[in-house]
Design a protein around this nucleic acid. Structure first.
Lengths: 347, 347
DNA sequence: CTGAAAGCGCTTACAG
DNA sequence: CTGAAAGCGCTTACAG
């Protein structure tokens, strides 16, 4: 007994001691079982005791240890969002998910991770109840592991289904076609494609776009398909390089996202071309900047907020095992602004 | 023994069994102690055994349970960032922090939370090793609790210091003065203030701005201090209301952040005023949109990326107890663009 | 180099 | 309504 006191004092000298359920129990003069029940709301505890313990716990700033609690209960109450960075598009997605999480009673943890390893560790170690993954750094092999481990997950960047795995994707093939059709209807025939990066969405937009051009018989050579990397800088350099080749000038450009579309516009304007008078441009995503840019950018809205809400809804359902995994899709919506014009006939 | 098998099969029917250290040990024919040592790199394990176990663990997709591991070790390896939402400013902050975290060997968890309760629960339950807090929803009382619990934390929105608590703040008072001085030097004397929200930064920018005006003897009445809430919409409505009063028109506006500055510009332009010809505008933050807006917005860059890096560096040092908490400050930098002009003399 | 045992802070049947 | 005890999955002295 005496010993215990000495030890406690020694502890105090080093670091403030974390307060545990044991401390609360001792202070309240009850067992830890009763404290646990009183705080969790479970079990049957005399109303007066419950209130007394709750007040005491609060005054002691007691908070159940996360690990101790989860080791037994295996429910964390948090959903993890795994994305490669946060700016722009991903931020909008995260914000819309947060709102829905509140409604569903989950906490949202946004984990920035470039390495699939980090993500896999998070999921396999049960840090979260369920996950939303939109991360090109996560390999197909890792995704397979998640499926087999039966961890509730919603993929936003690949077509994978399992008992507890769903996927929701932008119908990027359709988006690509939509952009092509829009420019075609405006009379454009020589169109430059600024590709996205080598991801599901990047490849599908490309495929849809080129398919439409081919059907209409206006598919250009590979010189008219240049890299853009979903990135402003990359697109800028890429267009500069294209211009030095002095090929017949395209009358329109489809850039695989708005960021790269803006990179294109800058490069074109620097080279003395007017948008949309000399060249029309259509992007994709409808990021905030697009409506403020001069000229305002015509684009295809991918409905990111809607997607975010759907994804949370779905992962919550998977966690509760309300149904098994499935594939879903969202459609893009054309937003007409000033960066595209009808081609003057005979040009 | 027989019983055990039956139970196992029943388990399998319900859900894929999580693989534990026990499973790996059984499979490898060693004790769980050895598995633990082999995987963690600690202890002394025969090289061959270590490699065999690691390969086996990997093939079984074994990952140590987060809670089991932390319950003993009390180190999570993650830093938590607690912000109210992600778009714009906060996203830039988070991205810059992520990069620094990688260097320091921590994982960054971004937790969106409006309620201080959620944040407090996260910290007191030891979900993270340390925290960065920039959240007006977190009360002074809660902050005090964090300090006393000696949880390593860096506050970005208040001046609080403790053994394991530091704070880094934008010198928002200086920023406010800087904006005022810039407009004053351009010859402006009747200046409208569009305030921020009731936060540390909002109040300090206001105070610095008004102090300078007062020193120069050009402080206007309260009619020239209108709410902006750091928000585009709020600022927009607020300026509209101001204009209906038909007070002498200001020749310049200081908006407490870029978002609200853009809201002002829209309202002014809708009312027929030209920026900067009729009214000059200066904002604060230097968000991405500012350089693309027409006219490009003159603003004060708060150096958010630099702040993010500093904050991570500091919290990591506090976790390692390299030094005790302190107060730090970062200075703003004027970015001149087209939205402000020298006032034509005699106006 | 390897393993049996104690214990981290909780929850959850179960007994009273 | 309350509490003693087992156990969640790990790590860490300690013994051999």
């Amino acid at each position: 007994m005496w010993n215990a006191f000495i030890n406690e004092e020694e502890e105090n000298e080093r670091r403030v001691k974390r307060v545990t359920i044991r401390d609360v129990a001792r202070e309240a003069g009850v067992s830890i079982t009763t404290v646990s029940h009183a705080l969790s709301g479970g079990g049957s505890v005399k109303q007066e005791t419950r209130e007394r313990i709750r007040a005491l716990a609060k005054s002691m700033n007691y908070m159940p240890d996360w690990s101790g609690q989860n080791l037994k209960s295996t429910q964390t109450g948090v959903i993890g969002l795994y994305i490669p960075y946060i700016r722009g598009f991903y931020g909008l997605l995260a914000d819309s998910m947060y709102v829905k999480c509140q409604e569903e009673g989950y906490e949202l943890d946004v984990v920035i991770a470039e390495k699939g390893e980090t993500i896999l560790r998070n999921l396999l170690s049960h840090r979260v109840d369920g996950a939303i993954i939109l991360n090109h750094g996560f390999s197909a092999r890792n995704a397979e592991i998640v499926r087999n481990a039966e961890i509730p997950a919603v993929f936003l960047d690949r077509e994978l289904v399992g008992p507890l795995v769903s996927n929701i994707r932008f119908d990027s093939y359709q988006t690509g076609r939509m952009a092509a059709e829009y420019l075609y209807e405006l009379g454009h025939r020589r169109i430059l494609l600024v590709e996205g990066s080598d991801t599901y969405d990047g490849n599908e937009r490309r495929r849809g776009f080129l398919d439409y051009l081919e059907e209409k018989g206006i598919l250009q050579g590979e010189d008219y398909q240049i890299p853009g990397g979903f990135d402003r800088e990359i697109a800028h350099r890429s267009v500069e390089r294209f211009l030095t080749k002095r090929l017949p000038m395209p009358t329109a450009v489809f850039a695989a996202n708005d960021d790269s579309a803006i990179g294109c516009m800058i490069a074109l304007m620097e080279a003395g071309y007017e948008v949309p008078d000399d060249v029309s441009i259509i992007g994709c995503d409808n990021i905030e900047l697009s409506q403020w840019y001069v000229p305002p950018l015509t684009t295809i809205d991918t409905g990111v907020a809607d997607m975010g809400r759907k994804a949370i809804e779905e992962v919550a359902a998977l966690i509760r095992e309300e149904h098994s995994g499935s594939t879903m899709t969202t459609e893009g919506r054309l937003v007409e602004r000033a960066s595209c014009v009808r081609l003057a006939s005979g040009r």
